[in-house]
C-alpha cells in the first residue's frame, strides 16, 4: 500500500515538474499523461475507483488527446518550441518554490485529526457519520450514482446533487455548441 502510494505520488510529482521544465509541447503532453495517470492511481488507492476511472477516461483519454490534437494543428514547425526567457524562468521558479514552501508549511501545520473531531462535535455527532465504505471500501459506484440523482442513503441530511448534475449537463451542451461554433471552418468570401 505505502509502496504503491510512494510510486504513484513520486510519478505524479515528477511528471508535474517535468511538464514545467520541458520546452517541447509534445513532451509536455507526455509528462502530463504520466502525472495525471499516476494521480488516477492515487485515487484508486484512496478508495475512489469511480473518480479514478473517470479521471483516466475523461482526462487522459479525452482532454489530453484533444490537447495533443491542438498541438498538432497549431504546430508551425516539426517540433513546436516557444522558449521562455531565462530570467522569467528563474523568477517564476523562485516564486513557485516560495509558494510551495508556504503550502507545505500550512498543510503540515494543521492538526487534521483535531479539526475532524471538533467539526464532528460542533455538528452534534459524537461518532463519525456512517461512512459510505463500511465493508466494501472503494465500492463508490452506487452511492455516487444515487447522490447524483438526489438520494443520499449514507447521509440523509444532505440534499444530494441532482441540480448541479443537471446544470453540468446543460453546461456541457452549451460548451459543445460553443466549441463547434468557435472552431468551425471559416470559408473565405462568406462576408465575415
Amino acid at each position: 500500500m505505502s509502496i504503491l502510494f510512494t510510486i504513484f505520488a513520486l510519478a505524479a510529482c515528477l511528471g508535474a515538474v517535468a511538464v514545467v521544465i520541458s520546452q517541447s509541447m509534445a513532451r509536455m503532453a507526455f509528462w502530463l499523461v504520466v502525472s495525471l495517470g499516476s494521480t488516477a492511481g492515487l485515487f484508486f488507492l484512496a478508495d475512489a475507483d469511480f473518480v479514478a476511472a473517470a479521471q483516466l477516461l475523461i482526462y487522459v483519454g479525452g482532454t489530453l488527446v484533444l490537447l495533443v490534437f491542438g498541438v498538432m494543428l497549431t504546430a508551425s514547425g516539426p517540433y513546436l518550441k516557444i522558449q521562455t526567457s531565462p530570467a522569467e524562468t528563474v523568477v517564476a521558479g523562485l516564486i513557485g518554490l516560495l509558494f510551495l514552501f508556504m503550502v507545505f508549511a500550512t498543510v503540515s501545520g494543521v492538526d487534521w485529526e483535531g479539526t475532524k473531531t471538533k467539526m464532528l462535535a460542533e455538528n452534534g455527532q459524537s461518532t463519525p457519520t456512517e461512512k459510505f465504505d463500511d465493508q466494501s471500501e472503494g465500492d463508490t459506484l452506487r452511492p455516487l450514482g444515487l447522490a447524483l440523482l438526489g438520494v443520499r442513503p449514507d447521509s440523509p441530511n444532505s440534499p444530494g446533487y441532482l441540480l448541479p448534475f443537471e446544470i453540468a449537463s446543460v453546461h456541457l451542451l452549451v460548451v459543445l455548441i460553443g466549441a463547434a461554433y468557435l472552431a468551425r471552418a471559416k470559408r473565405r468570401g462568406d462576408g465575415s
Binding site: 509534445a26 475507483d49 473517470a54 483519454g61 498538432m72
Partner: peptide, 28 residues
Amino acid sequence: SADCGLFIMLAILSLEVFGIIMAGYSSG
C-alpha cells in the same frame, strides 16, 4: 473485481490512443 469494472475497462482502453498519437507525432 472492481464494482465499476466496465467503466475502468473503457477508461484503460482509451489510453491506447495516446500512445499511437505520440508515436505518430514523434516520428517526424
